[in-house]
Design a binder for these strands. Structure first.
Lengths: 108, 108
DNA sequence: CGCCACTACTCGGTGATACTTTGTAGTGGT
DNA sequence: ACCACTACAAAGTATCACCGAGTAGTGGCG
C-alpha cells in the first residue's frame, strides 16, 4: 500500500489513545503494535511526537520504569480527560467514516 | 459534531474527486453537496483550494460556462489520471478504515 | 575489550492539508 | 443605491505525520 500519511492525520493519535486504553504501554511497543495492525510505515519518531503531545495536553499519566533489555521505558495510561478524548475520537470516526462510505455507495 | 478538520485531511480531496466523478460540476455546488452530505463546516475556500490543486496536478478537465444567476462557473470533470487517483483513494480508504475498525473492535 | 544490534526516547525541521480571511465580480430584488 | 446570493481566487495560519540526527542502556560475538 502506498503512502497513507495524509489519511492518517487526525486518526493516528486516536489509534494511539485506543492502544493505550487497552493496556498501559510505552512508545516503542506502541510502534510495533501499529506496524502489526497494518500501519507498516509508522516509525518511532511519529509515535513519540504523538505521545509527547498527549502528555502536554494532559490526556495521559506517565510512569517511568526500568527495563531489563534497554533504557527505562515511559509507560502511558489514559486519565479521565484521555478517555473522554478517546470517546470523542470514536464518535468523530463513526460520523466521518459512515458519511464517506455513504458517498462511496453513490449516496445522497 | 465538533471540529472534523484533522480527520478530513487526506480524505476531503478524495470526496471531491468522487463528487466530480458522479457528474461534471463546479466549486460552489460541490461545497453545497458536501454540506448536505454532513460535512457541514466545509466552506468554499477549502473546496476551491482543492480544485485548484486537482487542476494543477492534471487530474481534471476544466470548462468555463456562463451562468444565469451569477458569474461564470468552472465545471470540472475527471480525466484518466483523475479516475486512477480516485481508485487509489478508495483503495487507501478501504485499507485504512478496515484496520481502524478492527482496532476499534478490540482487534489484533 | 571493541564493535554491533536491538531497545528506547528526544528534538529541530519539513511538507502536505484543511481552514481563515479578504477581495473581486456577476445577477436580481427592493 | 443597496443588499443578498452566486461564484471564484489568493495570501497566510495551524495542525499533523514524517524525517533525520542525536543520546543512551543492554547483551552478544570475536
Amino acid at each position: 500500500m502506498d503512502d497513507l500519511t495524509e489519511m492518517l492525520k487526525g486518526t493516528l493519535e486516536g489509534c494511539v489513545l485506543e492502544i493505550i486504553d487497552g493496556e498501559e504501554t510505552y512508545g516503542y511497543a506502541i510502534t510495533r503494535r501499529l506496524n502489526e495492525l497494518g500501519f507498516a510505515d509508522v516509525v518511532e519518531g511519529t509515535v513519540y511526537t504523538i505521545l509527547l503531545r498527549l502528555e502536554r495536553n494532559g490526556l495521559v499519566q506517565v510512569t517511568k520504569r526500568a527495563s531489563g533489555v534497554g533504557p527505562p521505558r515511559k509507560f502511558y495510561a489514559l486519565n479521565d480527560a484521555g478517555r473522554e478524548q478517546l470517546a470523542r475520537f470514536w464518535a468523530k470516526w463513526q460520523y466521518v467514516s459512515s458519511r464517506i462510505d455513504k458517498l462511496k455507495e453513490g449516496g445522497g
